[in-house]
């Protein structure tokens, strides 16, 4: 059983559909009373950081999420909210991993369009359980204008890297908390494999 946190800022349906394809049961949690700290959790999210954080605080999730003991996966905005703060709306986030969320810059010599929309490669370390049986440099689907930048003493939390003008952390992990900038639920077969790996984590 996977619990999916619904705070009004995610394409919950797609995540649930993807899990359903894998034959994994899931439950959508929209109030903090239903949230269990011993249950695997997926934390999706699209939209702006400011709104999302105020929703999380209003619903009481902001205090409880850091107490979760079971494997926890933040997707896209859900990953960004694990950091200390975001440049987007100058938002203070959950602070589970030390570092910031920054905006992509369209500056020479590498001109990029913002948002990043489309399939990009993720470089991974082979031993990462989240990327088990997923080839290095596999393509995943991204939609983002901001990226996660862990503090320099937190480099070990980066388990995936992607190039879009700069090299940024596209997957992170600290203890039971995982985050991916891409959308595994929208990344075809390889994305399903990653979700399946997550569901098998102890």
């Amino acid at each position: 059983m996977i619990q999916i946190i619904d705070y009004g800022a995610g394409n919950i349906k797609s995540v649930q559909n993807a899990l359903k394809k894998l034959g994994i049961e899931s439950k959508i949690i929209s109030s903090v009373e239903e949230l269990r700290t011993d249950c695997k959790t997926i934390f999706p999210g699209v939209g702006a950081a400011g709104n999302a954080m105020s929703e999380l605080e209003k619903r009481g999730f902001a205090q409880t999420i850091p107490q979760i003991q079971a494997p926890f996966l933040g997707i896209c905005l859900g990953m960004q909210l694990l950091m200390e703060s975001s440049e987007e709306n100058e938002t203070e986030c959950l602070g589970i991993i030390k570092g910031k969320v920054r905006k992509f810059q369209n500056k020479p010599p590498t001109l990029i369009k913002i948002p990043q929309i489309g399939w990009n490669k993720v470089s991974t370390k082979s031993a990462e359980p989240l990327f088990k049986d997923i080839p290095d440099q596999s393509y995943f689907y991204f939609v983002n204008s901001y990226y996660v930048s862990p503090d320099s003493d937190q480099v070990s939390t980066q388990i995936g890297e992607t190039a879009y003008g700069i090299n940024f952390a596209s997957a992170i992990n600290k203890e039971n908390f995982y985050g991916v900038q891409f959308h595994p639920e929208k990344s075809g077969e390889i994305g399903l494999k990653l979700l399946n790996n997550f569901c098998k984590l102890c």
Partner: peptide
């Protein structure tokens, strides 16, 4: 401009 700019591997 640097002929080898920082990589961008986003696919079309």
């Amino acid at each position: 401009p640097n002929p080898n700019p920082k990589p961008n591997t986003l696919s079309k």
